[in-house]
Amino acid sequence: MKKLLLFLSAFFAITSSFSQENEEFDWDKPMLGKKAPALQVKEWLTEKPDTTGKFIILDFWSTGCGPCVKFTPHMNEFAKIFKKEAVFIAIALQSKASLEKGVKQIEKIKKERNEKYTPIEFYQATDPKCELFGRYGGESIPMVIIIDPEGIVRWQGNPHGENGEGALTEKVIKEIIAKYKKK
Rank of each mutant, 00 (worst) to 15 (best):
F55R: 06
G134T: 10
E43N: 11
Y136K: 08
G33L: 03
E23Q: 14
E112S: 06
Y123K: 03
G33Y: 10
D127C: 08
T51A: 08
L99P: 02
I120N: 09
K110S: 15
K116F: 01
A125V: 00
P49H: 07
I106Q: 12
E47I: 01
A92L: 04
K83G: 04
L93D: 07
Q105C: 04
R113K: 15
M75T: 01
Q124F: 05
F78N: 00
L32P: 03
F55V: 02
F18I: 15
K101S: 13
F71S: 11
Q124H: 09
I120K: 07
S98K: 14
I14C: 04
K84E: 15
F11D: 05
N114S: 14
S95P: 05
G102W: 04
T15I: 14
L45T: 01
F11R: 05
E107P: 00
L132F: 05
K111F: 05
G64W: 03
E47Q: 15
A79S: 15
M31K: 13
G134N: 09
F78K: 00
F12N: 14
F133L: 09
D28P: 01
I89K: 08
E21K: 12
K35N: 14
Y117I: 07
I120L: 11
T72Y: 10
F12P: 00
M31V: 02
K110I: 02
E43P: 05
I120V: 14
C65D: 11
K34V: 00
S19Q: 14
R135P: 00
